[in-house]
C-alpha cells in the first residue's frame, strides 16, 4: 500500500531544452553535498543517453516492484560504479613549477569509470549519430521502493507534498533502500554512516522557492508544481495534454518526475541529403525508457509544432517554451535572496 498523501509535488523535465551544462548538478552539489563523506554524491546528475548512466548500468540492476507489486531483489552500487570523486594534481601543475611537463590528471587510479564517463558520447555513425540528455534526481515516487524496503521506517513521504525523505536520526545505514530503489538515486554517506539522497530542496519549498536545480537551469528545462494544481504547468503537461511521461513506468513505483521525451533530428542519406520523415533516435529505444506511450507524445509534439509553423497557436508549446520563468514553478517563485537564512 503506497503511503497516503494530501497533495503530490511533481516535476516535468523537458528533455528537448537540456543543454547538458550540468548547472543543475553543480547547483545541487554546492548546496547539499559539499561535505566530507559526500564527495562522490550527485543527488542531481545529467546523463548522456543512450549510455550507462549513473551509477553505471543502473537500468540493469533491478529493484522497484516490476512484478505485480512484489519487490525485485537488487544490489548496492559501489563507489566505483557511482564514480569516485577524483582529486587532481592542481598544486603540481599550477603552483609546482611543473606546468610545462606535467599534465592535469587524477591523483589516484581513475579506474575505468566516472560519474560522467560517457558524457556526450554518441551512438550510431556519422552523420546519423545521436545522443540526448537525461536529467536524474530522486523521483519522489508515489509508492517508494526505498520506503517499503527500510526495516526501520526511517524513510517517510510527507503528507502535505509527497516529498520522500530519509530521517537521518532513524537511519542506521543498512542500505536496503539503495538496493530497492530502481532508479539508484540513493547514496551512502561514509562519514555519517547513513543513506542520503535528493530532498527536493524541501527547506526552499517550505518558503516558496523552487529547488536549486530547477531555479538555476539556464535552459528552463524544469517545471514544478502540485499535480492537482490545474493552473500549473506541471498539471497541464502531465494531466491535460499528457505530453510528459514517467521514466521506466514498468518499475512500478509511480515516479513523480515526468519527462517530455526528446524529438529527433532527421537522418541523412549517403549523399548527405535529409531523409524526410526519418528520426535519428530510434523509437524502440525511447519506448524502452518511457513505454509505448512515447509514440503518441512525440506525434502530438510534432503535430503541435506543425500547427505553429503554419501560423497557428499552441498553448502547449508556449507552456514548454516558458516565455516567463515564473510560469514554470507552480507558484514556488519567491526570490531566495529575500529570505532569512537559517542559522
Amino acid at each position: 500500500m503506497p503511503p497516503a498523501v494530501k497533495r503530490q509535488l511533481a516535476a516535468v523535465f523537458d528533455m528537448n531544452k537540456c543543454l547538458g551544462c550540468q548547472t543543475c548538478t553543480i547547483a545541487c552539489k554546492t548546496l547539499w553535498t559539499d561535505e566530507e563523506g559526500m564527495e562522490y554524491m550527485w543527488w542531481n546528475i545529467v546523463s548522456t543517453m543512450p549510455g550507462k548512466g549513473s551509477p553505471r548500468d543502473w537500468q540493469t540492476l533491478g529493484g522497484g516492484f516490476p512484478n505485480d507489486g512484489d519487490p525485485d531483489p537488487s544490489r548496492i552500487p559501489t563507489v566505483n560504479e557511482f564514480g569516485q570523486a577524483w582529486e587532481f594534481n592542481y598544486e603540481e601543475v599550477f603552483y609546482g613549477g611543473e606546468g610545462t611537463n606535467k599534465y592535469l590528471q587524477p591523483k589516484q587510479d581513475d579506474g575505468d569509470w566516472g560519474a560522467l564517463w560517457d558524457e556526450d558520447e554518441a551512438t550510431g555513425e556519422y552523420p546519423n549519430a545521436y545522443f540526448f540528455y537525461l536529467q536524474m534526481i530522486c523521483m519522489h515516487c508515489t509508492d517508494p521502493a526505498c520506503l517499503a524496503a527500510c526495516p526501520r521506517q526511517a524513510i517517510y513521504k510527507r503528507v502535505d507534498d509527497g516529498i520522500v525523505l530519509i530521517d537521518q536520526e532513524r537511519c542506521n545505514g543498512y542500505r536496503f533502500c539503495m538496493e530497492a530503489c530502481p532508479y539508484k538515486r540513493i547514496y551512502f554517506n561514509h562519514n555519517a554512516k547513513a543513506s542520503q539522497k535528493c530532498i527536493l530542496c524541501y527547506p526552499r519549498i517550505e518558503q516558496g522557492v523552487a529547488p536549486a536545480c530547477f531555479r538555476q537551469c539556464p535552459g528552463r528545462v524544469r517545471f514544478l508544481g502540485f499535480l492537482d494544481d490545474e493552473d500549473g504547468a506541471v498539471h497541464k503537461l502531465v494531466e491535460r495534454w499528457k505530453v510528459a511521461l514517467p521514466l521506466h513506468p514498468e518499475y512500478g513505483t509511480q515516479p513523480n518526475i515526468y519527462y517530455v521525451p526528446p524529438l529527433s533530428p532527421p537522418m541523412f542519406d549517403d549523399d548527405g541529403e535529409v531523409i524526410e520523415g526519418s528520426e535519428r533516435v530510434p523509437r524502440s529505444y525511447l519506448e524502452s525508457l518511457f513505454g509505448p506511450d512515447v509514440n503518441r507524445v512525440l506525434d502530438t509534439l510534432t503535430a503541435e509544432m506543425e500547427t505553429v509553423r503554419g501560423g497557428g497557436e499552441s498553448e502547449m508549446l508556449d507552456t514548454l517554451i516558458a516565455h516567463q520563468w515564473k510560469s514554470m514553478f507552480g507558484g514556488f517563485t519567491k526570490d531566495p535572496s529575500t529570505l532569512k537564512r537559517p542559522q
Binding site: 512484489d70 519487490p71 525485485d72 531483489p73 537488487s74 521502493a145 517499503a148 524496503a149 527500510c150 526495516p151 536496503f176 538496493e179 530497492a180
Partner: peptide
C-alpha cells in the same frame, strides 16, 4: 520476522 518484504524477497 524480517520487517520488510524487500529483505524477505532478497
Amino acid at each position: 520476522s524480517q520487517p520488510s518484504a524487500y529483505v524477505q524477497a532478497k
